[in-house]
């Protein structure tokens, strides 16, 4: 079974909120002192892929569209025991739209060969647009399923479980498919063994330019789908009223009197 996992490197979503600053000019977040990390759902996708590989057999390839910095995320994927990695070096817009990314990934996947299963994270922790997966499925003409949290492979048939608003659904598909992975308790990304971290530097990580995969910067200019026209940090003008009172009972009384009307109106 050949599995390809597309991963995205993003600005650390756990950076302290007070450190978060935006550049009004470029309409992007300032890197500042924050780190770049692999998007968590992409790591869930890697973990899902590796578990399938370990249960059956085959090969897992990690693919990313990014800069030289992105190599770190791919190395980490290799340390998680992904077999090989490919990095398409980004040209032009530093925040390409979802369609541009989907086109790049589709071209890269065509270049890399045939895959039985393509996994992606359900959305990214930076822009969180969540469109790339669906668009890539269209580009590749593959059936897809979103919010998948576990996959079993049996004789070419994939059984996927996914989360819905009210519970779960199970779907089966034969032949190549694309799944957008969400987290569950079974796909918590593994901590790489140090031995594997050391080995990851000896595993193949190929870098491609857009030209290598048959695209030009104009093909994927990155703002023909949508364009960010404003990015700002909202200033919350909510003033929290701290409940006052001489005793805790009194405070609770005040709190209850504030809550009670809403409760009465909605019961």
């Amino acid at each position: 079974m050949k599995i390809l996992v597309c991963i995205k490197q993003i600005l650390d979503p756990d950076m302290p909120a007070r450190d978060f600053k935006v550049n009004a000019e470029t309409k992007e977040a300032e890197r500042g002192g924050a780190n770049l990390v692999t998007n968590i759902f992409c790591e869930n996708a890697l973990e899902t892929a590796l578990q399938i590989k370990e249960k059956t057999s085959g090969k897992v390839t990690a693919l990313s569209y990014g800069t030289d910095d992105t190599e770190d995320s791919l190395r980490k994927a290799l340390a998680m025991t992904v077999d090989e990695a490919a990095l398409i070096l980004r040209e032009g817009d530093s925040n390409p739209d979802a369609e541009a990314v989907a086109k790049v990934l589709a071209a890269a996947i065509t270049k890399l060969g045939e895959f039985d299963l393509i996994l992606m994270g359900r959305e990214s922790g930076d822009w969180g647009v969540g469109q790339t997966g669906g668009l890539l499925a269209e580009e590749l003409g593959l059936p897809s399923l979103a919010f998948v949290d576990s996959i079993e492979a049996n004789d070419g048939t994939l059984t996927m479980r996914r989360q819905t608003d009210s519970g779960t659904e199970t779907a089966t598909v034969t032949g190549p498919a694309l799944a957008l992975i969400t987290n569950n308790e079974f796909n918590v990304p593994r901590i790489p063994k140090t031995r594997d971290v050391m080995m990851s530097y000896r595993k193949p990580l190929e870098k491609f330019s857009l030209a290598d995969i048959g695209l030009s910067a104009e093909d994927v200019s990155g703002s023909s789908f949508y364009e960010v026209t404003d990015l700002s940090i909202p200033t919350k003008d909510v003033q929290c009223e701290f409940v006052e009172g001489d005793s805790i009972d009194e405070k609770i009384g005040v709190l209850a009197s504030k809550i009670q009307p809403v409760v009465a109106a909605n019961s």
Binding site: D14, P16, R18, D19
Partner: peptide, 9 residues
């Protein structure tokens, strides 16, 4: 993980 402070706050 999850700290809301940076190294100079």
């Amino acid at each position: 993980p999850g700290t809301q402070f940076n190294r100079t706050d």
